[in-house]
């Protein structure tokens, strides 16, 4: 059975990077299987976020290929994008002058069906923001913003979550909530970038270590 997602020899170099461009990603190969969590770790500038953006089809790799359920991803990957949920995380990502509930309603509309006020309230309750439904996003703390990003991930069922540094700014309760959410759907795969190896261990992630744009190691954390 083919993996959910295959990363075949992915290279990425920034355009207009000067006369001696350095590749941010250098031949990354990996697989993500259904139901598994892949945690990506690495130092600053090792290419983690760039890799996530390529997985989310926000960036086009300079070379290499991405395959979803055995099929290469096309030039306008509408079906793949519909199956993927990407979160770049706080502090940005929502309209600062809309309330939490209004933001969720808008982004649910973007994903297909606009939530009712009641529906948005239910989601906010799940991430511990029920009391802040009518507060403007601009007034949210970093942790509250991160929780709202989690709520947006819950807007639609998806086969793959791609999440960048989700623990940033979260308090202990927030991290516990995140853990529950990430472990709550056995049929969904997750690719998560985090500096917090303890957290990745707790969610049972297989670890991919990126070093200078290359896969230095790929194994379970315990090994």
């Amino acid at each position: 059975m083919s993996p959910l997602l295959e990363l075949n020899d992915l290279w990425y170099t920034y355009p207009h990077a000067g006369p001696n461009p350095v590749a941010v990603l250098r031949g990354v190969r990996a697989e993500v299987h259904e139901g598994e969590t892949l945690g990506i770790v690495g130092g600053n500038g090792s290419g983690k976020s760039t890799l996530l953006k390529i997985l989310a089809t926000l960036l086009r790799p300079t070379a290499g290929q991405l395959r979803y359920r055995g099929e290469p991803i096309g030039s306008v990957p509408t079906a793949y994008r519909a199956a993927v949920n990407y979160s770049a995380g706080a502090p940005l990502g929502f309209y600062p002058r809309l309330t939490a509930a209004e933001n969720l309603r808008f982004f649910s509309g973007l994903k297909g069906t606009t939530l009712t006020r009641h529906g948005a309230g239910g989601l906010l309750d799940r991430v511990g923001l029920a009391d802040q439904a009518d507060v403007l996003y601009a007034r949210f703390s970093l942790g509250m913003r991160q929780r709202l990003h989690l709520a947006r991930l819950l807007l639609e069922p998806s086969a793959l979550w791609i999440v960048d540094e989700p623990t940033n700014g979260l308090d202990a309760d927030g991290v516990r909530l995140l853990q529950e959410l990430l472990g709550g759907a056995p049929d969904r795969a997750t690719v998560v970038v985090s500096h917090d190896r303890e957290f990745l261990h707790r969610i049972g992630a297989r670890i991919l270590i990126l070093k200078e744009g290359q896969v230095a190691r790929c194994a379970s954390l315990s090994s």
């Binding site: 994008r81 940005l92 990502g93 309209y95 600062p96 994903k111 297909g112």
Partner: peptide
């Protein structure tokens, strides 16, 4: 301009159709 301030590019780029209609 509002989207630039909000930093919601990714959401629009991943699911453009309804966003662009709006």
């Amino acid at each position: 301009e509002v989207e630039l301030v909000a930093g919601v590019a990714e959401e629009f780029l991943l699911r453009p159709s309804r966003g662009l209609w709006a």
